[in-house]
Write a protein that binds this DNA or RNA. Structure first.
Length: 826
RNA sequence: GCCGGGGUGGCGGAACAGGUAGACGCGGCGGACUCAAAAUCCGCUGGGCAUUGCGCCCGUGGGGGUUCGAAUCCCCCCCUCGGUACCA
């Protein structure tokens, strides 16, 4: 057989040009079609100007899936765009002393070219770029809609401030007290900010999680993030303040008689009001210190509890006990009511605090079977038990008592059942330049006034001299931009100087793609009806609690106001795993980052993308090996040699004649078509590739190295034409060339997926396994339709079996049709 | 701590619904081709014992269990990766 090697460089370049020239991936979103599939993979963030291996791992396999759907007759929409606002572009611009807009546009140009190398079916007419006015006009429009519906509000409150980035961050962007992107510490700061009231949607976001086909882990993470907690709200009147009471939230109302003090979070406004004069200075100092400390510092100190006494007292509504009111930073200002009732005997945190500050500990829940004693207590008893020392509730089991206590409260005007969520409102103001301007105007006379819709977009000014972060938005320093007139009264006014969190940009891009050609409307309702929800959404699991909550929220909001036909963006979602090197995560610091270009130059992009798919289960991730890629390279070249050895000038036939092929070849071919199809439908790329390799191995056995003269060239060509079609989604450039050489008309991805003949998979004789007591002892050939009795007789006939059953009593025989016979003996 | 994923040859990884563990590939060994090498093709390749025959024993992180039969189901434990963490 020829030893010519597949000339990937020339072939790939040629077909890419051809696809472009023929506009081969043109998608008509308005076309009538009964099987539409919106395959969406998260768009890219052009922070660096090169595609890294993660992009290939993300985009190549999804395109393979999309191509498979297309060959199966679906009209597939597979768009691509750029999430191009944000800090990385700004930081990069600072580094190279350029302008964010310029570096962003350059990166997009470059990356688009690289994306084309992947060979995906992107129709670039639908591209969206979030940093361009024709996109962010609609980001601003969305803001106005939210404002109109009372879901965009300005609040003063404590926010996560990053001193390094000089901007506010959303809760979702802060992990363990540090910025999740850069690892920089974050402090609390009081600021006025715009918030989107996502908390209005908690119940809906939670309920719908049960209806969607998303990875279980992601659903769990969202549930935890929203953090619905059922419990009881209890009000404790404060001594000497007739109209003031401290409201707490608790999930353990059964421990109410064990409360020995109350705690306010340092952020709580009541601290200032309630603190007695003699203790003012101490409390103020504590509060200040607690708030200025980063969360890192707060948690670093071995979790030792700190706090101060306010000098004030409250009253337990149930038993009238006098309770000292403390301030401590182990109580979070942003959860529940920002204050708790402390039950040291039954809550570990309260226990530690009480021990440290020598506050009383009172046991009100006893376990069943033994009795706890305060003196001997080394930790809080947090399990349920039997209520003791709890007035007329004593003797009740925790679960019963909790309900009884909660039921008693409303009558005393002291509280009742309550639900609390962990999810907070989404803070969207950012004090940075490279983002979408907030379309709001601040007028001295009229207050906050929205920019009229017809004035959108509020353009982000290009001519900025200094966009560097300085703690306040750089836009605020631009006199000619910040100063404007009030749309309401015409008087002098100022624009909002902040820009929006980039998660706002990506919260509706899936809808904007469908109207990317229209500047007159944000979305195209007709197309949305046809294409939504997204058939398959693919992206990293790291977006579980950020982007994926926001995109659900915004989709739902747009649904509620009649702009979107569906309430949930994606019916099905999967996460790609991570690609590792030697089992380790790739990172610059480890110096183990694989550079795709090196391998694409050497093997071509088809081999590269195919090898990535071969390394492992797409959802679990794979491990990159510099040597392993040669396996795919060999495979491609093995197919290539078959192609060049059996070129054709006629269109390959549709149906194959079984008589032209050895039985095993014919069967393997049909099996390959079936298995590859099944695997592609469920994104099992690695096993699909194995199946194709098996077929090629069979072909080489049949045809031999030099090509068997007995084999009919036309028949081989027909078979290869089937192989090329099932291979096309994996190696689009290669298969385009192979298809052409076999006499096929372009393009191969416009061909229908081949049929397989189920009858070809049926074997007349099967190798049955014979087991004795479940252990493999022999194999026999028998007709596929042999009866149980026949199989048992054959098994007993076997010489090898004889030795294992001689002198033993046969207990029973188990026959698994088509597979095995198991003789059970004693 | 809690939630989720994962632990299978020298390596990456297969195994549908409990039914031949290790498909496919890398690497390794042997052979063919070659003056030679590369490339290519073919064969072998979990461990141990036996290799005078076929064969026999062990083996899917560890320990128990259910079953005729367990990588797969149940219980306990270990390791690892990811998420989250004073949430009252």
């Amino acid at each position: 057989m020829s030893e010519e090697r597949y000339p990937f460089a020339e072939v790939e370049a040629r077909w890419r040009t051809r696809w472009d020239e023929d506009d081969a991936y043109h998608v008509d979103l308005d076309a009538e079609h009964d099987d539409r599939r919106y395959v969406l993979v998260m768009f890219s963030y052009p922070s660096s100007s090169r595609l890294h291996i993660g992009h290939w791992w993300n985009y190549g396999p999804t395109d393979t899936h999309a191509r498979y759907l297309r060959m199966n007759g679906a009209l597939v929409f597979e768009p691509m765009g750029f999430d191009s606002f944000g800090l990385p572009a700004e930081n990069y611009a600072i580094k190279v002393d350029s302008h964010p807009k310029q570096v962003t546009e350059q990166s997009i140009e470059f990356i688009r070219g690289q994306l084309k190398q992947i060979g995906a079916m992107y129709d670039w007419r639908w591209e969206v770029v979030t940093s361009r006015p024709n996109y962010y006009k609609w980001t601003q429009w969305l803001f106005l809609k939210l404002y109109e519906h009372g879901l965009a509000v300005q609040k003063e409150g404590l926010v996560n401030w990053s001193p390094t980035l000089q901007t506010v961050l959303a809760n979702e962007q802060v992990v363990n007290g540090v910025d999740e992107r850069t690892g920089n510490p974050v402090v609390q700061r009081k600021m006025t900010q715009w918030y989107f009231r996502i908390t209005e949607y908690t119940e809906q976001l939670l309920a719908e999680l049960k209806q969607i086909d998303w990875p279980e882990g992601t659903i769990k993470r969202q549930e935890n993030w929203i953090g619905r907690s059922e419990g009881t709200s209890i009000r404790f009147p404060v001594e000497g303040h007739e109209h003031v009471s401290i409201e707490v939230f608790t999930t353990r109302p059964d421990t109410l008689f064990g409360v020995t003090y109350l705690v306010l979070a340092p952020e709580n406004d009541l601290v200032e009001r309630l603190t007695v004069r003699a203790r003012t200075r101490e409390v103020e100092e504590y509060v200040q210190q607690a708030l200025s400390a980063t969360e890192m510092e707060r948690t670093a100190a071995e979790r030792k509890k700190t706090g101060v006494f306010t000098g004030a007292y409250a009253t337990n509504p149930l038993n009238g006990e006098r309770l000292p009111i403390w301030v401590a930073d182990y109580v979070l200002g942003s959860y529940g009511t920002g204050s708790v009732m402390a039950v040291p005997a039954h809550d570990q945190r309260d226990f530690e605090f009480a021990r440290r500050f020598e506050l009383p500990i009172k046991i009100v829940i006893q376990p069943v079977g033994y009795v706890n004693d305060v003196e001997d207590l080394t930790e809080a008893y947090v399990e349920p038990g039997i209520m003791v020392d709890s007035g007329d509730f004593s003797g009740l089991r925790s679960e019963v008592g909790a309900k009884a206590v909660t039921d008693r409260l409303p009558g005393m005007d002291a509280g009742g059942p309550a639900v609390t969520y962990r999810l907070r409102d989404w803070s969207v103001s950012r004090q940075r330049y490279w983002g979408c301007p907030i379309p709001m105007i601040h007028c001295e006379k009229c207050g906050v006034v929205p920019v009229p819709e017809e004035d959108l977009p509020v353009l982000l000014p290009d001519e900025i001299r200094d966009f560097r972060p300085k703690g306040t938005s750089p836009l605020g320093a631009m006199e000619n931009w910040i100063n404007t007139t009030c749309p309401n009264c015409g008087g002098p006014a100022k624009r909002d100087a902040d820009t929006m969190d980039t998660f706002v940009d990506s919260s509706f891009y899936h809808l904007r793609y469908l109207a990317a050609d229209r500047d007159d409307v944000p979305f195209d309702r007709r197309r949305m009806k046809k294409w939504l929800p997204i058939h398959l959404y693919v992206g990293g699991p790291e977006h579980s609690t950020g982007h994926l909550i926001y995109i659900r929220f915004i989709t739902r909001f747009l649904h509620d106001i009649g702009w979107c036909p569906v309430a949930e963006p994606a019916k099905k979602m999967i996460h790609q795993g991570i690609i590792t090197k030697d089992g380790m995560r790739m990172s610059k610091s480890k110096g183990n980052v694989v550079n795709p270009d090196k391998f694409i130059d050497r093997y071509g992009s088809d081999v590269f993308r195919m090898y990535l798919m071969f390394t492992g289960d797409y959802r679990l991730g794979g491990d990159w090996s510099d040597e392993g890629i040669t396996g795919i390279d060999r495979f491609i070249n093995r197919v290539w040699r078959l192609i060049v050895h059996f070129p054709g000038d006629t269109r390959p036939a549709g149906k194959l004649d079984a008589r032209n092929y050895p039985e095993v070849v014919y069967r393997t071919l049909h099996n390959t078509v079936k298995e590859v199809g099944d695997d592609l439908a469920e994104l099992s790329f690695n096993t699909a590739i194995s199946r194709m390799m098996e077929l090629v191995n069979e072909l080489y056995k049949w045809l031999g190295e030099d090509g068997d003269s007995d084999a009919d060239a036309g028949a081989v060509r027909e078979l290869l034409a089937v192989l090329v079609r099932v291979m096309a989604p994996f190696a689009p450039h290669f298969c385009e060339e192979a298809w052409a050489r076999l006499g096929g008309e372009p393009f191969v991805f416009q061909q229908p997926w081949p049929d397989y003949d189920p009858a070809a998979l049926v074997r007349e004789t099967i190798t049955f396994v014979i087991q004795v007591n479940g252990k493999l002892r022999d194999r026999i050939e028998a007709p596929a339709d042999a009866s149980d009795e026949q199989l048992e007789a054959l098994a007993l006939d076997s010489e090898r079996i004889a030795g294992h059953i001689v002198g033993k009593k046969r207990v029973k025989t188990i026959v698994v049709p088509g597979k095995l016979v198991n003789l059970v003996v004693k």
